[in-house]
Amino acid sequence: MTPQSPYALALRQTGDVRDRADFLDQWRELLAEAVDRLLQSGVTGGTPCASPHGPKTDVDAQKTAVLILAALHGGSTLSQLAQDPRPLNAALDLALVSFVAAEDNTAARTGTSSSISKLDL
């Protein structure tokens, strides 16, 4: 994703505040559902089925969705400002790496750039 992507553009602070708030609420809801599905299906690499503790209950899908949305929002603004894709990449990495852990364990542990933000989000 680049700062010019439709997602980043959709987050710009334009238009009616209430419309934008509704739009962001719906988006956050979709993100939370997606995070929840990922956690349930175990594709996040946490292997919840094999784990004696069941699904990763320490990850809150609603709060993760807020962070992802904030990372998109803040990261795209800072990327646009700096004319540099790194802020958006770093913000999304931070938001996604916390629950997409084991797939790329090194990135999750060190906070270095992972492949996650290169997904066609």
């Binding site: 987050l11 602070q13 505040v17 934008r20 708030a21 962001l24 807020v66 962070l67 949305l69 904030a70 990372a71 998109l72 929002h73 803040g74 990261g75 603004t77 800072l78 790194r86 802020p87 958006l88 770093a90 913000a91 990495d93 931070l94 938001a95 542990r109 060190t110 906070g111 270095t112 750039s113």
Partner: peptide
């Protein structure tokens, strides 16, 4: 940990802070 990338984390944290402000602004 020594292998943590400080600049990457600081950049990501700044994004979360600014995005948080913007979501708060929209949600009042």
């Amino acid at each position: 940990p020594p292998e943590a990338s400080i600049d990457q984390l600081a950049t990501g944290l700044m994004g979360a802070v600014q995005g948080g402000y913007m979501l708060a602004q929209t949600a009042r």
